[in-house]
Computed example of a mutant assay.
Amino acid sequence: MTQVIELKGVSKRYDNAGAPALGPLDLTVAQGEALAVTGPSGSGKSTLLNLVAGLDKPTEGTVTVAGQRIDTLGEHALARYRRERVGMVFQFFNLLDDLTVADNIQLPAQLTGTARGKAAARAGELMELLGIQKHARAYPGRLSGGERQRVAVARALVNRPALLLADEPTGALDSASGQDVRRLLVDLHRSGQTIVLVTHDLALAEACASRSVHLVDGHVALDSRTEAVR
């Protein structure tokens, strides 16, 4: 089975005198897998996500994503890696308020050099898939939290990334919008999208993930699989 993520002997220290924030650990995520990373605050969840996203570098070990060793890349190459191979969804959406929904979604594609017409067609496809096509000309500030998170997911998927990273994607939403995003993540996983979800919400992890890794003090305390995503 193809591995989308492969961490070998990875550790991250922010203070040479203290214990590592993460690791050392080995971790693989297979293509099409939906992995939920859970654990208490300070357990290393965000550190793990940042290493996979190329936003931080390990103190020791290697990080390979989609066949590319990313821990040795410079900043320019890492920016390209994030644009082309990774889609990211954040707790607070990070949409540009002065761009329409359609333009927010198209922006990452245009940054990779995709022709405007092709980017617009891909954005239209995603808006229809995610049920937000009626908001194409609207601005994010006029949408509900759940709708804005759908826009953020569409933006993350516009370049057909090998990996979707979601950092507390329901953390800023009310319960109804959270359920909406939960169903969306389930549907994306069923379609074959590889997902790594960082969350404090165990119900979200149980509903969306085919596998869960629970971190404690930077180490994997539990690595479990579920039979099916509901």
Rank of each mutant, 00 (worst) to 15 (best):
L7N: 02
V10G: 06
D15L: 05
N16K: 11
A17N: 13
G18P: 09
A19G: 04
L22E: 12
L22W: 12
G23T: 10
P24Y: 03
D26L: 08
L35Q: 04
A36Q: 06
P40Q: 12
P40T: 09
L48I: 09
P58E: 08
E60Y: 00
T64Q: 11
Q68F: 08
L73T: 08
R83H: 10
R83G: 14
V89H: 03
V89F: 06
F90Q: 07
F92K: 01
F93I: 09
L95S: 02
P108L: 11
Q110M: 15
R116T: 12
G117M: 09
G117L: 11
A120F: 01
A121G: 00
M127G: 04
E128D: 15
L129W: 14
L130M: 01
H135D: 11
S144V: 05
E147V: 08
R150M: 13
A152Y: 07
G171S: 00
D174T: 10
G178K: 01
Q179D: 13
R182S: 13
L185A: 10
D187S: 15
D187T: 14
D187C: 07
I195K: 00
I195F: 01
L197A: 08
A203L: 12
A207L: 00
A209K: 10
L215C: 11
V220R: 01
A221N: 05
A221W: 02
D223T: 11
T226F: 12
E227G: 04
A228M: 02
